[in-house]
Amino acid sequence: MPERSGKQSEKQSGKQSEKQSEQRRLAVLKTYKLYVGGAFPRSESGRVYEVTDASGRWLANAPLASRKDARNAVVAARKAFPRWSGATAYNRGQVLYRVAEMLEGRREQFRAEVADAEGLSAPKARAAVDAAIDRWVWYAGWTDKVAQVAGAANPVAGPYFNLSTPEPTGVVVVFAPQESSLLGLVSVLAPVLATGCTAVVVAAERAPLPALSLAEVLATSDVPGGVVNVLSGRVAELGPPLAAHGDVDALDLTGAGPEATALEAEAAGTLKRVRRPRPDEDWTADPGTGRLLWPLETKTVWHPMGV
């Protein structure tokens, strides 16, 4: 008995000193920032907004991006486009696979962030993160296969080879799904990158933290700066200038919610390619090729056969 109590007191004192050292240390809070042109700036406006978990507990402050941040993001995306679209499909696949590798190493962080953001239990959050990484790998494999699927050698009535190849459309603005903060985001972003487009992502308004952390992954995995730009803020504020922007080529309105119709009307002024939101999209289902093919332009070449 005395032995046992001695052990117990030892254990207790150990716990106490652990507690003390924990009390002495000030936790380092993370300042979430935007991701624009390969850098992590605060919002040009200096504003932030409070992000809470599903039960209303404060998690962090996220930058509240402004119209000017959106403009800067488009400039960065445009600047990055020639290099990204000009890279070989094989190289793009390697870079995207590298992103999945980096995500794998930060699974725990994303699991915690997704659980907080969506109010999921630990196993469900883990499943969502794993599915997101798998989806990223799946799209990484598509980079050098899109042309075979979407391209064609067309039969024509003349002595010509007639070949159609898909080409990336340019700068794509993506409104990330509101309800699925990581899996949904990856499902809309990865296919855009796989085809060679560059992206401006407007993160889920109430759950932007996984998207802002994904930016850190992208910054450390060979994706050239500007290829992905992540903004957090209000769809109602960022939507109209991005939808009407003359240098944006396509608009994915998946997460635009009630603003979607108005934004589609804004986009008509510059004849953008628009992807409308589909009701109740199931992010865990097989995504198919739809999201790969929508931001593509088809180029057809007539080449004389020389007969």
């Binding site: 403009r71 488009v74 445009r78 200038p241 009407a244 003359g246 240098d247 804004e266 002024g269």
Partner: peptide, 17 residues
């Protein structure tokens, strides 16, 4: 010219214009 178009139309212009 792009800035001028922005002031005139209210939306950002691009190098295509």
């Amino acid at each position: 010219l792009m800035q001028r178009q922005k002031l005139r139309t209210g939306s950002y212009s691009g190098p295509d214009y």
